[in-house]
Simulated scan of single mutants.
Amino acid sequence: MVSEYLEPLAAHPALAPIVNYGHRVTKVTRVQPQGKGVGRTRSQGREDSLFLVRIETATGTEDVLGRAVIDASGTWNTPNPVGRSGIEAIGEIEAKVAGFITSPLPDPMGADQDRFVENEDITLLENVSVSSVVVGEQLTVHLADGRLLRLDLVVPATGFRPDLKPLTELRLDLDQIVEAPRALGPLIDSEFHSCGTVTAHGERVLAHPEPNFYVVGMKSCGRAPTFLLATGYEQVRSIAAYLAGDRAAADLVELQLPESGVCSTDLADSCCGTSNPGNIGFATGTLHGHAELVSAQKSCGSA
């Protein structure tokens, strides 16, 4: 994913000069062009104001101004807890600090290899509720049904949630169930939809009361797991068209999923892909994200 998609995309001549690394956004608010503050409660002149984005870098803190903000920060760093009903189990924070609870997507063959190499037995638990954990030589896990487990590591598969703390000074309209934009919530609720049944949507669905502010990508789905990269590409294209003044293009939203299903790649029949379409885990529709890369893949054997 990184070497074959993200790095080539970031190195594209149109993007490389404007991609900044090592920047973390901590706050987003609004200011007048002359510098006067525009808090959340101020409506007069809000549409004509600029965004002030506070950024932490290796060299310190700085503020950046812009006329629009598209939050594509994802949910990678905000996994759901292992505790029941959406809150941490008693002792969960201490267990994470002690290294007994890993990130939701560890790398057992790479960076996390040392943590997994001596643990040969795997216990898979589904639909369980953890009430408390106790740190010792092993991690003692108390389940809500009364069972007790002693484990070396816990790899949580509990899903993710959006980090909305940097956005508290903005006017957001969120679905009360999944914390997605209100108009998007019913389209992605995982009790009624899978990622393959989410309809195409763009700027109008993603808009908030805050003018020219959008959340896209995985974070736009809030707590719902029904996201595809192809959906995100179409979200960004629609918003970019709107910000460029092309309302017709912004409203023309389409979503083309691979014919073999939403869990396959659209490169399977190319000279550089596999001979048989297979479920390899990326329902990205690479064609939507970087057409030039796909062209290169398909022409690599034509000479």
Rank of each mutant, 00 (worst) to 15 (best):
V2Y: 13
S3P: 02
L9G: 02
P13I: 06
P13W: 14
I18Q: 02
V28S: 06
R30G: 02
V31N: 06
V31R: 15
V31I: 15
Q34F: 01
K36C: 00
G39I: 00
T41Q: 09
R42F: 05
G45E: 11
R46F: 05
S49N: 03
I55Q: 03
E56H: 11
T57S: 11
G66A: 15
R67I: 00
A68T: 06
V69A: 03
V69K: 03
I70W: 03
D71K: 02
D71I: 12
I87L: 00
G91W: 14
I93F: 07
I101E: 04
I101A: 04
P106L: 07
P108C: 06
D112I: 08
F116G: 05
V117E: 04
E118S: 11
N119W: 06
N119K: 14
V128N: 09
S129M: 09
S131T: 13
Q138V: 08
L148N: 03
L148A: 00
L149A: 09
V154M: 00
V155Q: 05
P156A: 01
T168F: 11
E169L: 10
L170V: 07
V178Y: 12
E179C: 05
R182T: 07
I188L: 08
D189C: 03
D189F: 10
H193M: 03
E203M: 00
L206I: 03
A207N: 05
P209T: 08
P211R: 07
N212P: 12
F213L: 10
V215K: 04
V215A: 05
M218N: 07
K219Q: 10
G222A: 03
G222V: 12
P225N: 09
T226G: 06
T226C: 10
L228M: 11
L228K: 04
A230C: 08
Q235N: 04
V236M: 04
R237F: 04
D246E: 03
R247K: 09
A249E: 07
A250I: 00
A250D: 05
Q256I: 11
C263H: 13
D266E: 12
D266M: 05
L267S: 08
A268K: 07
D269N: 09
D269I: 01
S270T: 15
T274F: 01
T274Q: 08
S275F: 02
G278L: 10
H288W: 10
G289L: 13
E292Q: 13
C300F: 15
G301I: 06
G301L: 14
